[in-house]
Design a protein around this nucleic acid. Sequence first.
DNA 1: TCTGGGGTCCTAGGACCC
DNA 2: TCTGGGGTCCTAGGACCC
Length: 396
Amino acid sequence: MRRILHVDLDAFFVEVCRQRYPELRKLELLVVGGRRDQRGVVQSASYGARKFGIHAGMPIGEAVRLCPQATFFQGSFVHYRDASHAVRAVLERFSPTVVMASLDEAYLDFAGMERLYPVSLLPIAEQLRNEIRRETSLDCSVGIGPNRMIAKLASDCAKPRGLMEVRAGWEEGFLAGLLLKALPGVGPVTAARWTELGLTEVHQVQGMQERELERLIGGDARALKLRAHGHGGSTLRADRLPRSMSRETTLSRDLGDPVELEAILSLLTARVAGQLRDEQLVARTVALKLRHDDFKTVTRRRTLETATDLDAELYGAARTLFREAFAEVRRRNRGVRLIGIAATNLGVAAEADLFEPAQRQRLRDLTVAVDKVREKYGFGAVTPGAALGARRRREQ
DNA sequence: TCTGGGGTCCTAGGACCC
DNA sequence: TCTGGGGTCCTAGGACCC
């Protein structure tokens, strides 16, 4: 019997900021994500601010318009990460299989633990919620179900600070009351398409034959039908390799100077390469992302002969891709709003290669030395040469 | 109102191979 | 002269999630 438990921290980013900055605690209207005057979107809003219609993903400017009296605060990733680790440590006492789906969400597998918890997992969920509260001062909601989808939907229903269990056999009844757009994987685009066809609620799908549904929405019918009846994945894989690793930045103002852009690209690449080495991974494919100032977003990628974790090799590919992609920016006579780099096609780094070409060995020695300096003095202690070009140009 | 940053997964077409 | 079918790898773009 599969039993999955989904833990979802309530207003996670807001609460972590409040813990770290006591002056934020008394503010009922708090919006975390970016500052008032910055380009950005809302990461999380306090429950008070949500009453004004503010929600995650909304542009900061719009949130300011809806609730000018709110406080806008930019939190720090390191604080979120540390809080997330603290929560995970509590969760790991309850199940050997804990998979963090993001900083503020986790799945726990309780399959095969019927002896310990024969009927309901609610008492365990309650204990878990109390221990998280006691040890991290964070509130959470917990959903329990026979698969990941049901567990997640149950925790959505339980928010905030609630518990909900949907036992095997009750999935259809539980889902019958939900909107299709509540299902994970049904986003704004799909929901709008189905609404046009008159499909908005899960019970409509439940009541249709698959053939009928297929005439309406085509090839997605089978998958939707299965989900509407409560089927979903019930296995958790904790030890998968990550699929990609990336850094991107929306510039504070649009840029048209390729030298400045290449300088930023070299820093972003150094960050990704550093993280690859940190996690002992190598990448075979490098992907560049450029967003033009009219929001047209372009990606270019290249697969290398050999996988690598070296700044110089990743940046070599990144710069080539950038020059190709930037030609289009020029042709369209636009500026660049965002630039980013991703390493994909990841693998586990091999043990030292005795037959590595001498040049590559020198690059590796250099990289190891740079990592040591950075570990001691911080990332900014070493700057890639490519990043200096722009500085020199500005000084001139 | 003016649109972040970190990810995952899917699709479609083309090259290439047998 | 016209033209299989299956499989893998690669690229670009897009939907979606938190």
